[in-house]
Simulated scan of single mutants.
Amino acid sequence: MLIVHPTSDWADWQSWIEHAITAPGVSYWPEVSGDGRAGYTLSASTGYWGPLVPPHVPEFEYQWYRGGDPIPRATRSTYIPTSADVGEEVWVAVFSPGVALEKSSYGVVVEPPGPVVLTDVSDNPSSRYYSEFAEEITWFADQGITTGYSNGDGTSQYRPFGKVTRDAMAAFLYRYAGEPPVTLPAESAFVDVTPASSDFYDEIAWLAEQGITRGWDTYAGVEYRPFQAITRDAMAAFLFRFAGSPNVVPPATSPFEDVDRISTEFYEEITWLAETGITTGWDTSTGKEFRPYDPITRDAMAAFIYRYDEVFGEPESEPQAGSTSELSVAELPKPGVRSTPADSSVAPSTSGPFVSCVDASGCSAPELELVKPAGQ
Results as ranks from 00 to 15, higher is better:
Y129V: 01
I71E: 02
W282Y: 13
I3E: 11
S339M: 10
V108W: 03
T138I: 05
W16E: 12
Y48W: 14
E310K: 03
V329L: 11
Q157H: 07
C363T: 03
T41P: 05
T231V: 03
W49Q: 10
Y149T: 08
I137L: 04
Y176S: 08
T165I: 06
S361N: 12
Y224D: 00
S361F: 13
A189H: 10
D202N: 15
G50N: 06
T155A: 13
L207M: 12
P250R: 13
L184F: 10
V121H: 11
P292R: 03
Q157R: 14
F312D: 11
E268F: 06
F312T: 12
Y79S: 02
Y130H: 15
R166G: 09
A196M: 12
T119M: 12
E102D: 08
P319D: 13
L173V: 05
D167P: 15
E369F: 04
D120K: 06
T138N: 05
T286R: 15
P335V: 00
L368E: 09
G107R: 00
R214D: 01
W206N: 14
E102C: 07
G39T: 10
A243V: 11
Y267H: 14
E268L: 07
D192H: 03
P81V: 02
I3H: 09
S344P: 13
V116R: 13
T279G: 07
A170M: 02
G144W: 01
V4G: 03
A274W: 10
D9S: 04
P366A: 02
